[in-house]
Amino acid sequence: MSIDKKTVEDVAHLARIELEAKELEKLSKQLEHILAFIDKLSVLDTGNIAPTSHILPISNVLRKDEPRKSLPIEKTLMNAPDKQGNFFVVPKVIE
């Protein structure tokens, strides 16, 4: 499978990354190159193989429903690029 510029553009939108024309050109080529290498996986017959999403054989990791201290508001907002009162502030949604 290969990846064209249009696909890279769509993927960049999903990832919320803006690419200049030159950057898009370069990245598309590099990604195509990398994907061509990755495509060597397609020779393997993986039909009956179970996927591994967790390498450890652990399950049912749970905590008790016990309250813990929340952050003081100064710490919560300490790194905020924009804030108002107790709130984080973001630009308005324009689609």
């Binding site: 996986l41 393997l44 993986t46 179970a50 996927p51 591994t52």
Partner: peptide, 8 residues
């Protein structure tokens, strides 16, 4: 597919 090859 990658998760499956990870198993292998």
């Amino acid at each position: 597919r990658a998760l499956k090859v990870r198993t292998l």
